[in-house]
């Protein structure tokens, strides 16, 4: 048996919160609040104290204070985080300053202060039909579900999404590509696509297959997710599961050709030959058009370089053939 930490050795500090505020009437402005905190103070608790003791007009969302309701997403010193899963003094230590900035999440329209409009996020979630469609027999109690423990574990990983929106706020593809469902919706989509108890696979494929190829694999969602959902892993798994689905959507087709081209290139040259991959992915005409832009931008060296196979290409091929 060991002794618990001596919680009375509290480290305390006076912290300044710089909060980016907004209201329809007053527009944008920054406001500062000073507050004494100890090593246990969560950012949500700090906000609560500011609201109760200093400025009741400050608007933010928080409910569970234990990182399961997904209400309190915001930017803390520029990082998308859950306020309740962030200890004030940890931020002070990490950034080496006792001034902490709080801003609303990116990408979402701001309603007031730290409160953003999540309507679009909920709509994205709804597009992947976020619910199980069990068989008729099961619903009529003529059959019973069994679920393998390993399936339960795999699905549960993605089902733990708390709809906080942090990943979407950080995802570059969501911003650029209106046809991309976004990380959280893909995690949810995969969770049902892969559920052996579900019956509407065909419909799910239609919704997920093309969108899955619109992700840029930048891993932002992986880094910001407070629940370790790894939406990008769900997207990878979706691509792998649906790689031969026909007919292909535009992004899927391009993506599919791209991965085939990459495979071929590595098989032939032992490395990625960018020029060849590009032509195989986008086709000759599009490549030629793009190349004229590339010339102008001085970036055509990849396309024109003559590429020799690497020395170990035979070993690479053996590996790829699974020998």
């Amino acid at each position: 048996m060991s002794t618990p930490v001596q919680v009375q050795d509290l480290q305390e500090a006076e912290v300044v919160f710089r909060v980016k505020r907004y209201s329809k009437e007053k527009g944008d402005y920054w406001q500062e609040y000073k507050l004494k905190v100890d090593r246990f103070t969560q950012v949500t608790e700090a906000l609560r104290r500011i609201k109760v003791k200093q400025d009741p007009s400050l608007a933010y969302r928080a409910s569970c204070h234990m990182a399961v309701c997904g209400s309190c997403g915001m930017k803390i010193n520029g990082e998308p985080r859950l306020a309740c899963k962030t200890l004030v003094l940890d931020v002070v230590k990490k950034f080496g300053t006792n001034v902490i900035t709080l801003e609303p999440m990116d990408r979402f329209p701001i309603v007031k202060d730290l409160v953003v409009d999540m309507t679009e996020f909920y709509d994205r979630m709804e597009r992947v039909k976020p619910r199980l469609y069990p068989s008729k027999e099961v619903l009529e109690y003529k059959a019973e579900h069994r679920l393998k423990p390993e399936d339960q574990r795999l699905l549960w990983k993605f089902a733990q999404c708390i709809w906080c929106g942090l990943c979407v706020s950080a995802c570059p593809a969501v911003k650029e590509d209106p046809l991309f469902l976004g990380p959280a919706a893909h995690a949810k989509g995969f969770r049902f696509l892969r559920d052996p108890r579900d019956t509407i696979t065909e419909e799910r494929v239609k919704v997920l297959a093309d969108s899955a190829w619109r992700c840029t694999y930048c891993y932002m969602c992986y880094h910001v997710c407070p629940r370790d959902i790894e939406p990008v892993t769900a997207i990878k798994k979706t691509r792998a599961l649906l790689k031969s689905v026909k007919p292909m959507g535009p992004a899927q087709e391009v993506g599919h050709k791209h991965s085939e081209a990459v495979y071929e290139s590595i098989y032939t040259y032992g490395k990625i030959n960018e020029g060849v991959v590009y032509v195989k992915t986008y086709g000759l005409i599009r490549s030629l058009v793009d190349m004229t832009y590339a010339f102008r931008a001085g970036k055509a060296k990849y396309a024109l370089e003559k590429v020799e196979p690497v020395k170990e290409v035979e070993q690479v091929r053996e590996l790829m053939r699974g020998e």
Binding site: L139, P149, D195
Partner: peptide
């Protein structure tokens, strides 16, 4: 709730 999709922890035999 199981029929509706809840992912209850399982025993090795799937129950």
């Amino acid at each position: 709730l199981e029929r509706w999709g809840a992912l209850f922890n399982r025993q090795p035999d799937g129950r």
